[in-house]
Write a protein that binds this DNA or RNA. Structure first.
Lengths: 246, 246
DNA sequence: GAGTGGTCTAGACCACTTG
DNA sequence: AAGTGGTCTAGACCACTCA
């Protein structure tokens, strides 16, 4: 005889089981324990681990898919997704991919590279450094021969020690970071500013010309990764986004 | 005797059933057949309508919840969600709510109001009008005594005939539209421009000062609703957004 | 107190990919 | 060919909430 319905034994917390499973996997992804491309245990393995039915596991994974953290392929399994490299207003844009996506030649120029401590007077630099050092970079992105954006970036070597050895004279730091930091959250700020003398020379615009300024801080899990300020000639560039109330 | 497993009778399309159900309800919401606050049939009603199990109906509704189109309340039922009025970079922002949310006084001034046909030379105006007339408005938003944004807006009277009678001398058209058009999609464009003489006077900035320009076209279902261009003093304003790869 | 949605199960068949 | 995820069922208990 079959025992009566299992009675949902040991519902330790008040969170539903599928959320616990989702959170458990999500944590592993966000902390980097599971990196992009890594395989996630099969459904039947998770069924055993969490002692639940397949539908429950499936619901948990479906949540991760809808967040874009996981991709699932029949017969192959489930894997941690690669961060999208496409550029929209919402994503962390990769300027190189963006320019090449428009069919333009991309060129890049490293203007300066400096290893330094955070300025004690700048609170956000200290938070970024987290006690370590900062890599301070400035560079120029060029699209089809025309200056596209000036970029000033700080990278926290405490969070991304590998950046110290990376060769940013060839490929831009943004692209490198997208490839080497598994997942991120970002805080954006878009404003407008007038071009000063130095910027005007770099971007080939007149002094005082309106520019779009994008400032972004990026985290990996709860560790700060990088802080970047990109300046675009305002009449040559725009941010696009198609949104539904979704 | 019970018949053998129902064999998924009549799988007309190759879309899964839960997606068909979701699409069916989503369509009703996007076309306005179901308006915000309207009740969605109970799960057991949908089970009968679509002749399927409750889990399948539940999956369909869960999809709509995750899109923010539907809210569900125990014992009460499922309802079409009200569009969010909060303002982020992704949403359709309501300037009035935005300013008041910062604890500043909000003032509003209607500068002009004109009923007119679309200019045949401007393709986007003709698409917006869809054969009807346009309401052409310009106005100024003021926050705490300081000019905040200049707005130039076109409303398609073909899609929103009620706008003809609305009193935009009191409340701004953006707020009115958010309250009267049930759901929308939007296309945004953010750029920077220099302030001209007229704008400088209105916004109280110097001529040539950098300004943030937000252009947005909004649709209700597949009908164009409105097209707006808002200009912000660039050093006084910024667009913020916190994003995760979600 | 009754009915809603929230969650879960233990099966099943199917479609797809390649382990 | 085998094994994965995708979908679906016909039940069940529960928590919540509102008439």
């Amino acid at each position: 005889m079959s025992s009566p319905p299992p009675l949902q034994s040991a519902k330790a917390t008040n969170h539903p089981l599928h959320e616990q499973i989702r959170a458990s996997i999500e944590r592993k992804i966000l902390t980097g324990a599971l990196k992009p491309g890594d395989r996630i245990p099969f459904e039947h393995e998770l069924m055993e681990s969490f002692d639940c039915s397949r539908m429950t596991v499936s619901k948990a994974l479906a949540g991760l898919v809808s967040k874009g953290l996981v991709v699932r392929r029949r017969r192959a399994g489930s894997f941690v997704a690669h961060p999208p490299s496409a550029s929209t207003l919402l994503d962390v844009p990769d300027i190189q991919a963006d320019i090449q996506g428009r069919g333009l030649d991309y060129a890049y120029q490293l203007l300066s590279r400096r290893l330094r401590a955070p300025l004690a007077s700048r609170r956000e630099e200290c938070e970024l450094a987290k006690g370590g050092q900062l890599l301070d970079l400035t560079c120029l992105h060029v699209a089809g021969g025309t200056p596209f954006a000036y970029e000033s970036r700080l990278i926290s070597l405490e969070t991304v020690p590998d950046a110290r050895m990376a060769d940013f004279s060839v490929s831009p730091p943004g692209t490198w970071l997208l490839d080497h930091v598994p997942w991120s959250q970002a805080q954006h700020r878009i404003s407008a500013a007038a071009s000063d003398a130095r910027l005007s020379k770099l971007l080939d615009v007149s002094i005082g010309a309106p520019c779009l300024v994008l400032e972004r801080t990026t985290w990996h899990g709860n560790r700060p990764v990088t802080q970047v300020r990109q300046t675009f000639p305002g009449e040559r560039h725009a941010f696009l986004g198609a949104f539904s109330h979704t």
